[in-house]
Design a protein around this nucleic acid. Structure first.
Length: 414
RNA sequence: CGGGGUGUGGCGCAGUUGAUAGCGCGCUCGGUUUGGGACCGAGAGGCCGAAGGUUUAAGUCCUUUCACCCCGACCA
């Protein structure tokens, strides 16, 4: 991609109505556009990051046997009445509207009831189970107050997976597999060591649910982490009984601010009983399906990663999710243009994602933009470099600079 | 939903006791520049959030309303 063709531009002015660091930087760098409080559009650069995060999540969900589908954003009132969750008193963040004929509809804040309603039509026999499906979907939540930029929006993208199992044993196996898959996701996103499986309030069927919390100052949760055991407990459920249950001591824990990036629930058969989701077993008897639900906040993850890795110069993307791998800076006259054009073609031809600053701008502006955008590698082609037949490579994360020959550069970037 | 604040070119802001709407960034054109957000010159772009009111006269005063932000409560 040539910057002269790129849709958005960087800006020096910080929007005054946006306070969160993640949204400020993403807006300045041209990754997101604020539509209204808690509602953000994703420009090409931002979308590239989102898609990369999604692809990592997709691969890991597929690896445990998840099948991707997509539900609708509009939902029926009847779907939610079966569990009493249509009522605004039960769920206070509904966006609702009406069809022309007056029929009430809701904008999906969750897909639990909706997807189960669909699944139960297809999963009738023990032969149909287990079945695990997931989607990437926009969720709409009418929050009283929206804050923290894209970490907490009124409209956001979430991956939600649902598992349908024959029995508890099958369910537990999948639940554990998914925990491992989640750990791989966070590892690949570069936040593995700061992300803790966290015990949180459970609900009717289990004492605890599990949250995946990433240490982050901009987060809205407080958790207590146990570094040796690599687990954590949410402040909400931290009491002597819970600690004893988990076999950990209060003095071994460290209090940190965190953001909930993932969340898994064991519904047992509670929800399938509520919604009459049952299958027929080998003996011809009706059995309720064991259900689990597994979320990952895609847009929230993007915000958390921005908060964690950015510095005074701007964004810093982990290599796996950077919108481009290389920011190619061109400085100088005719010879530099020819040389940079050639290198751009060569790198992109080799499958390396390059954003090429082909603008007639000053070097300082190009360097500053490469840093603001957080592209992992900056390669400079200039008249000065051409004299020695070298390329300058600078790593965004630590500013480390090296001068490389053509072959060394390609070897480094491949 | 309680408390506080802010709405003025695309963005950031100034605008005094009410009297010709201004600056910076960005944008356009011309020229000079090219290793850390350049400079000179010439331009374009605004029903001052909206609706009512007071006044000879309203960005400025009054009323209503909408939006946004902050603190709290709530929540993935």
């Amino acid at each position: 991609m040539r910057i002269s063709n790129l849709f958005t531009k960087t800006s020096k002015n910080i929007p005054s109505d946006e306070v969160s660091k993640n949204a400020q930087l993403l807006m300045r760098a041209g990754f997101v556009h604020k539509v209204m409080a808690g509602v953000y559009a994703y420009a090409p650069l931002g979308l590239r990051v989102l898609e990369k995060i999604k692809q990592i999540v997709r691969e890991e969900m597929d690896s445990v046997g998840g099948q991707e589908l997509i539900m609708s954003s509009l939902q029926k009132k009847e779907t939610w009445e079966t569990t009493g969750r249509w009522d605004d008193k039960a769920v206070d963040i509904w966006f609702k509207s009406k069809l022309k004929d007056g029929t009430e509809v809701g904008f999906a804040w969750s897909h639990e009831e909706a997807i189960i309603e669909m699944l139960k039509q297809y999963l009738e026999s023990y032969k149909d189970l287990p079945m695990n499906v997931y989607q990437f979907q926009n969720k709409f939540r009418n929050e009283l107050r929206s804050k923290s930029g894209i970490i907490r929006g009124r409209e956001f993208v979430m991956k939600d997976m649902y598992s349908c199992s024959l029995d508890e044993e099958q369910h537990d196996k999948f639940y554990d597999d998914t925990i491992k898959a989640y750990n791989r996701v966070f590892e690949r996103l570069g936040i593995g060591s700061d992300t803790y499986m966290t015990f949180a309030s459970g609900g009717a069927f289990t004492q605890f649910s599990h949250e995946f919390q990433t240490i982050c100052e901009a987060g809205e949760d407080t958790i207590y982490i146990h570094r040796q055991k690599n687990i954590a407990i949410n402040e909400e459920v931290m009491d002597d009984a819970s600690l004893a249950n988990l076999g950990i001591k209060r003095e071994e824990l460290e209090k940190v601010k965190s953001a909930e990036v993932g969340n898994i629930f064991n519904f047992g058969t509670k929800k399938s009983e509520d919604m009459n989701f049952a299958y027929t077993n080998k003996e011809g008897k009706k059995q309720f399906v064991f259900l689990g639900s597994y979320g990952i906040g895609i847009t929230r993850l993007m915000g958390v990663i921005v908060e964690k890795f950015s510095d005074e110069k701007g964004l810093v993307w982990p290599a796996n999710i950077a919108p481009f791998k290389v920011y190619l800076v061109r400085i100088g006259g005719e010879a530099a243009v020819v040389s940079a054009d050639k290198l751009y073609d060569e790198l992109t031809g080799a499958g390396i994602e390059v954003i090429y600053d082909d603008r007639e701008a000053h070097p300082g502006q190009k360097f500053a933009d490469s840093e603001l955008m957080g592209i992992p590698y900056r390669v400079t082609v200039s008249d000065r470099m051409l004299e020695t037949n070298e390329y300058e490579l600078v790593e965004r994360r630590d500013g480390q600079k090296m001068l490389l020959t053509h072959d060394q550069l390609l070897a480094k970037l491949n």
